[in-house]
Amino acid sequence: MESKGLQDLKQKIQDYQHYGIVLLGLSSFMYLGTVIPFAGKDVTDEIVCGTTSLTGLGFTALMYFQAKRLKKQLQDIES
């Protein structure tokens, strides 16, 4: 039976991956707001959507980096 620490570590890995997926979806949605034209959109709207999209992509990369780091830590513990 696995210890509580290993279960927590696996749960954290799964959470980071889920956060990354959600942030990637949000970033994609915001990017679409940047490239799809609609009435009443001005330059500031494009800047906000573009900045939010890039910020979301940065946090997505951070989440996957953390998940990768924890996976390596889990492999070290299990070996």
Rank of each mutant, 00 (worst) to 15 (best):
G56E: 05
K41S: 14
I47C: 00
G40R: 05
L26I: 12
L62H: 03
Q11T: 10
T55Q: 03
F38R: 15
K71F: 00
T60M: 11
T55G: 02
I21C: 00
L62E: 04
K71G: 02
S53P: 01
F59T: 07
T51E: 14
I21F: 03
A67Y: 02
D8F: 09
K71W: 00
S3F: 05
S27I: 02
M1C: 04
Q17R: 14
V48T: 11
L26V: 07
G20W: 01
E78I: 12
K68R: 11
S28C: 05
K41A: 15
F65W: 08
K12Q: 11
S53Q: 04
D42W: 08
S3C: 14
L57M: 15
L57R: 10
T52A: 12
S79F: 13
E46C: 10
K71I: 05
E2P: 13
R69S: 10
F29P: 00
L54Q: 12
Y31G: 13
Y31C: 04
K72Y: 02
V43K: 08
L32F: 01
M63T: 03
L32V: 01
T60Y: 09
K41M: 14
Q7E: 08
Q17T: 12
Q66H: 08
K68Q: 09
F59D: 05
I36C: 14
I21E: 13
G50Y: 03
L62P: 00
V22C: 02
M1H: 06
K4V: 11
G56A: 11
Q75C: 04
G33H: 07
G25E: 14
T51R: 13
E46M: 08
I21N: 06
G50A: 15
I21Y: 05
V35P: 09
V22S: 06
T55M: 03
S79P: 07
L26P: 00
S79H: 15
D42C: 08
K4L: 15
L70N: 02
I13S: 04
A39L: 12
V48A: 11
M30S: 08
D76Q: 11
Q17F: 02
S53T: 11
K68E: 06
T51C: 11
K10F: 01
F65A: 15
L54V: 15
F29H: 08
T60C: 12
I77K: 15
K72P: 00
T52R: 00
A67F: 02
L54H: 10
T44A: 08
V22T: 08
S28A: 10
D76I: 04
M1N: 06
T52E: 03
A67R: 04
P37E: 14
L70H: 01
L32E: 04
Q73E: 13
T34Y: 11
L23S: 05
I13G: 02
D15R: 07
Y64I: 09
V43N: 06
T44W: 10
K12E: 07
G58H: 15
C49E: 08
L74F: 05
L70R: 01
I77C: 07
F38I: 13
Q14F: 06
L24G: 10
T55A: 09
Q66P: 00
Q7H: 02
H18G: 01
Q7I: 07
L57W: 12
I21R: 09
T34A: 12
D42N: 15
F29N: 04
T44G: 00
L6W: 01
F29G: 03
D15M: 06
L23D: 10
E78D: 03
T34V: 14
Q11A: 14
I77D: 12
Q17W: 02
